[in-house]
Simulated scan of single mutants.
Amino acid sequence: MGNYELGQVYDLELSTLKPNPHQPRTVFQDTEIRELANSIDEKGLLQPILVKELEDGQIIIVSGERRFRAHQLLERETIPAWFTTGDPEELALVENLVREDLSAMETAEALKKLADRFGLKTNDDIGKVIGKAPSTVSEILSLNDLSENIRNKIRGDKKFALRELKKIASQNTPKAQEKLFKAYEAKIETESLKKATRARLTGEALHKKKVQSIRDYFTKMSADDKILELSSLREELSNLKDGIEIILNNLIELNSKFDASKVEEASSKPKKKKK
């Protein structure tokens, strides 16, 4: 393995490292790299990258390309790295899949590549390699049935949930998939706007919003539902009142006993004779 030993950490020059051509992560978000760079700048690199030296002397990144890019952004000259042996593609695929560091679409494509390259015939075989149930593997692989347009949109974006994407993938035609996907995108956008609105509401505005929500809730209820709801609320308040009264009575009783003991203590003390 040339001048390098396994198990040793080396500070390697960034200019000598080559990205892994079989890296399962195909999209790197600028914001993620910037956030990682800020973290490394503040706390240092917590985990060295994993590299392998090829027969021609080239050193390729097996795992840790985001950390590598963050160091480039920080204009660092070197980065700590471990050396490994074995197939770089298999190592990169398995590590990323086990760490769940990929988007749903990247995971689906990586699983398919893993199965094709290493002759894994069944979902059970794939599951044993990455530590997932065959049913989960089946769900993930189904995303490869999505239309090319949808695959391109969701690749590299973790906001798209597997449970929703598999419903879209189950549609019989690309047109049906596109229709359901647009509805899903609209739902995500609406939820995002609601979260942003809630985040901006504070103090009096938040109080008014809560009061209005309660009013809207009762407006939509039928008369019978309102009676049931109010009856339940009245019962809860009554129970709360009873509980408070019990606590107050207990406190009064304890206080009376305390006062009585004080009086008894005072009366038992011998009185001083007047001179």
Rank of each mutant, 00 (worst) to 15 (best):
E5T: 07
E5M: 08
L6E: 10
V9H: 03
L12W: 15
L12C: 06
E13T: 11
E13P: 04
S15E: 12
V27E: 09
Q29K: 15
Q29M: 13
R34E: 15
N38M: 13
D41S: 14
K43M: 06
L45F: 07
L50Q: 15
E55F: 05
Q58A: 09
I59V: 14
R66Q: 11
T78L: 02
A81P: 11
F83N: 02
T84N: 02
E90M: 13
L91I: 13
N96T: 09
V98P: 00
S103W: 05
S103H: 08
E106W: 01
T107L: 09
A110K: 02
L111K: 03
L114W: 07
D116R: 06
D116H: 12
K121G: 07
K121C: 03
N123L: 03
D124N: 05
D124A: 10
G127V: 05
A133I: 12
A133R: 10
V137E: 02
V137K: 01
E139H: 06
I140M: 04
I140D: 01
N144G: 11
N144C: 08
N144E: 11
I150P: 00
N152H: 09
K159E: 13
E164D: 13
K166Q: 15
K167S: 08
K167R: 08
A183M: 14
A183N: 11
E185C: 06
T190K: 10
S192R: 05
K194Y: 05
T197H: 13
R198S: 14
A199D: 14
R200Q: 12
T202A: 15
A205Y: 10
A205S: 12
V211C: 01
Q212Y: 02
D216R: 05
T219H: 04
T219I: 05
T219D: 06
D225K: 01
L228E: 00
E229P: 01
E229G: 00
S232P: 03
S238L: 11
N239W: 00
I252D: 05
E253K: 14
E253F: 04
D259C: 01
A260M: 12
S261A: 09
K262G: 09
V263S: 06
A266V: 04
P270S: 04
K275D: 15
